[in-house]
């Protein structure tokens, strides 16, 4: 672990924690601002060694743009899926065909897998039960085919192509 690398991780943690603090205490006074900056710098000294995939390079404009594009896409997917599930809940016969299926991802980094798992879980109808290496175990509330290729295309595919813009 060389020092510049450690510094870049520390800087990432400092910026993220400070922004979070500013958002939490929104109409902030100057004293609160100083307290937040000092505590953020102190905490990120200790957490820097755990967040190995972040650094100053995480603030590259292309990555931030990718994240900003991703937010409306995921919100739209959530709304669509919520309406589908609402129809299931409201129909008297309860037409569900649940199954736990597997799907493979091409994402390499842990943070990318985390983003993908959370996106899958946030859209109702699909729920990530576990991840082992690159295999996702997904509980679906209604699925026609249970083979792995179909699941990979239909569930993971729509998030993965957008996620690849900002995570590995």
């Amino acid at each position: 672990m060389n020092s510049s690398n450690y510094f870049s991780r520390w800087f990432f943690g400092f910026i993220v924690l400070s922004l979070l603090w500013l958002a939490f205490t929104f109409p902030f006074s100057l004293a609160e601002l100083y307290t937040g900056l000092v505590v953020g710098a102190f905490i990120s000294l200790f957490t820097a060694k755990y967040f190995e995939e972040f650094g100053i390079s995480s603030f590259a404009p292309s990555k931030i743009l990718g994240l900003l594009i991703y937010i409306p896409i995921i919100l739209w997917e959530i709304i669509k899926a919520n309406i589908e599930v609402a129809i299931i809940v409201l129909s008297p016969s309860l037409p569900i065909e649940p199954a736990i299926i597997t799907a493979k991802t091409k994402l390499k980094s842990d943070i990318g897998k985390m983003f993908l798992a959370n996106s899958i879980t946030l859209t109702p109808g699909t729920l990530t039960v576990d991840i082992i290496k690159d295999t996702y175990f997904i509980h679906c509330i209604k699925i026609d085919k249970t083979d792995e290729r179909y699941a990979t295309e239909s569930i993971i595919g729509k998030f993965e192509k957008h996620l690849r813009r900002f995570v590995k």
Partner: peptide, 15 residues
């Protein structure tokens, strides 16, 4: 309404 725990998680928590 849902019959088992996993379906309850699906419909309820995320809605």
């Amino acid at each position: 309404r849902m019959p088992d725990l996993y379906n309850r998680l699906q419909t309820s928590t995320k809605a």
